[in-house]
């Protein structure tokens, strides 16, 4: 089986407060530590597990991003992915959900995938819209919020997370599957993985390789636009109050103000 996993390199969500550049209105990616999206680590683990259980399958990681995104793909290779594809092109900068999905779908289409894994949402953009849009562009069914996946013959069956439990959902293959974060234990690379990652097949594609026009993607093709960037309502920096008998009320006010009741 030809299995794919879409991954993304993002500013380390654990140490970097994600910021938008007021001039370009894009995510600040310079001068910050960039990592493979932690959610994608989970998704890769799910894909590797499935590949190994199926046997005779190849797992390819695919990413769209600047040259630095190579590092994220190397990490994926070190974790046990077999092959990597990086789609990198200056014209892709500023892509929105549709531009991103269109680009990834174009690259995936060339590969005739049987199964495409995505994370439910990226940890920095968290729109969660790219996988569905990829599925639509490829005309494939989508199995979302999976916390378990099995493949039986030409069908995939998942346990789909819901508010109160889960649904068992099946669909024919090929299909797009999104993995709910935290459903699988991320794989810490072995030395063999780290060393072999340097030798595994790694291809780089540009927009023209995919037969896409620069007007369809990037800022030029964006169907959404940021008008302005403002400061969030200043998160009252650690208000410390001595209890004078009204602590319960103060806390309840706080809860109500933040819609937590």
């Amino acid at each position: 089986m030809k299995i794919f996993v879409c991954v993304k390199q993002i500013p380390d969500p654990n140490t970097v407060e994600s910021k938008l550049d007021p001039a370009t209105k894009r995510l600040v990616r310079t001068g910050v530590s960039l990592v493979l999206d932690p959610g994608d680590e989970t998704t890769i683990a799910a894909a590797i597990k499935l590949r190994d259980s199926l046997g005779n399958s190849e797992l390819t990681a695919i990413s769209m991003g600047p040259a630095s995104a190579q590092e994220a793909l190397r990490r994926a290779l070190a974790m046990g992915v077999d092959r990597a594809i990086l789609i990198s092109d200056p014209a892709l900068a500023g892509s929105d959900v549709l531009g991103t999905a269109r680009t990834l779908a174009a690259a995936l289409k060339r590969e005739n995938p049987d199964l495409i894994f995505c994370s439910t949402e990226s940890t920095d953009g968290y729109t969660g819209m790219v996988p569905g849009a990829i599925a639509e562009f490829l005309g494939l069914p989508q199995l979302t919020f999976a916390r378990e996946i099995t493949v039986e013959g030409s069908k995939a069956v998942i346990k789909r997370v819901t508010q109160t439990g889960y649904e068992v959902v099946e669909s024919p293959l090929p299909a797009v599957v999104t993995i709910a974060s935290g459903s699988f234990e991320a794989i810490y690379p072995t030395m063999k993985g780290i060393m072999s990652a340097r030798k595994k097949p790694f291809s780089q594609l540009s927009l023209s390789d995919l037969g896409l026009e620069s007007s369809q993607v990037g800022e030029a093709g964006a169907r959404e636009q940021i008008l302005s960037i403002g400061k969030a309502e200043a998160r009252a920096a650690g208000q410390i109050i001595k209890d004078e008998g009204n602590a319960a009320e103060i806390i309840a006010d706080f809860l109500q103000r933040h819609q937590l009741l």
Binding site: E17, S18, K19, L20, I226, L227, G230, K231, A232
Partner: peptide, 17 residues
């Protein structure tokens, strides 16, 4: 957006969004 920012966004074209 993130912990610090709030952005104002729009659909920059005519028609449904």
């Amino acid at each position: 957006w993130g912990g610090e920012n709030v952005v104002v966004a729009t659909h920059p074209y005519q028609g449904t969004g």
